[in-house]
Design a binder for these strands. Sequence first.
DNA 1: TGACTCTATATTGGATACAATTATCTTTGT
DNA 2: ACAAAGATAATTGTATCCAATATAGAGTCA
Lengths: 222, 222
Amino acid sequence: MDLSPDRTQREQGQSAQAQAYAYLLAEIRSGRLEGGTHVVADRIASTLGISRMPVREAIRQLSSEGFMTIRSNRGAVVTALGTEEIGELYEMRAVLEGFAMRLVTTHIDRQGLDEADIALTRLDRARENVDWFITAHDQFHDAFLDYCPRPRLVAEIRRIRRATEPYLRMTLKVSSTAGQNTTDEHRELLSAIRSGNPSIAETAMREHVLRTDVEELVFRGA
Amino acid sequence: MDLSPDRTQREQGQSAQAQAYAYLLAEIRSGRLEGGTHVVADRIASTLGISRMPVREAIRQLSSEGFMTIRSNRGAVVTALGTEEIGELYEMRAVLEGFAMRLVTTHIDRQGLDEADIALTRLDRARENVDWFITAHDQFHDAFLDYCPRPRLVAEIRRIRRATEPYLRMTLKVSSTAGQNTTDEHRELLSAIRSGNPSIAETAMREHVLRTDVEELVFRGA
DNA sequence: TGACTCTATATTGGATACAATTATCTTTGT
DNA sequence: ACAAAGATAATTGTATCCAATATAGAGTCA
């Protein structure tokens, strides 16, 4: 997940549209393109040294993925989510990822649990730095999702996570440090999955995402 | 939900891209464009009397919504879902719509429940005709979703329903008639929501979608 | 000063033109 | 007859061009 600000020159075999898509998504996820920003296709095009059409396509795709909003004849703006919408996205992820855990409990093995344990340690050590924390946090959740035998479900969960990332980043920057309880939260989650009981695991994950993430984001800052 | 096969001439104010999108989506949902069909942008363009660019954008949007698949330099094909993928989509809908019912129980009023009751009657009467049945079935579920205060969640549920519609249609055509138990199933669902207990409602809907729809589709035909 | 109209500019939507790639057909050799 | 190779056509990807629309600004009049 590199987020280099400058021109990602078209590497071998990468289409112009893919380049534009990757560029814009990275700008949005990183927060460099803030919500509400008006994105002019022509500017992006010349920044990347390509024409406007592939940029248009990238914008359309990003908009149907929720990252941008296209207003007819008035261009595209980076989707600015209000607290309600952010809350709704977290809620959806909570529900979906909760269900994913139900499936994970019956598919994860010793190795998977060990990996999650390691990820938890990394997460604890990464508390001071926003980028590290987000990366480690994603990896912790991914450690479980890797064992969920539902590719589309996993893709959707990750999509939602990306969509909310800029706001998580903002919040973390404000509070500067993730709390100690974050680690405790995740440790409890891990043990719920270790229990092997699908219902317990589902509930734990649902509550975890709702509690930790939504509360911190919506009520504390943003 | 009209699905006219012939040219939907560009009505007042409708952009070419919107026209292409609506046209392709209707063709796919109705089953006229079967899964696996290679869609040539130029053909669609001349069919609709527009150029290729807005069609490309429509295709890209449809692909990011799961209706089509774009292979680099090799065009787009209508997504052909296997039984596993269909099952996964139903599963996701079951989970999301289950959660939606949790919220609905605390927001629905007398009028909403009456509407659901009426929709149930219509559903029962529409059992012989595939199109009527699908419409009535959607309306029954929508009667609840109208009372769910989470717009994105509702949109996602409907998106999944549209994506699986062609396959439901195929299955219904084979079995020619929806069973009596379909009505019973939905009646039980309604009473679960009437109970006013969020957890009962959530479970009922989740089980309902998984049981009725997935079983009929995946194990009976398709 | 402030609202309004008209004009100039920027931006978007769409069509066409061209280049790059893939698919199809034909030819050739065995 | 079959496979390989080359030529040809079809299709996709991208750039450029033009028209339609929206935005911003200058001037005008009360």
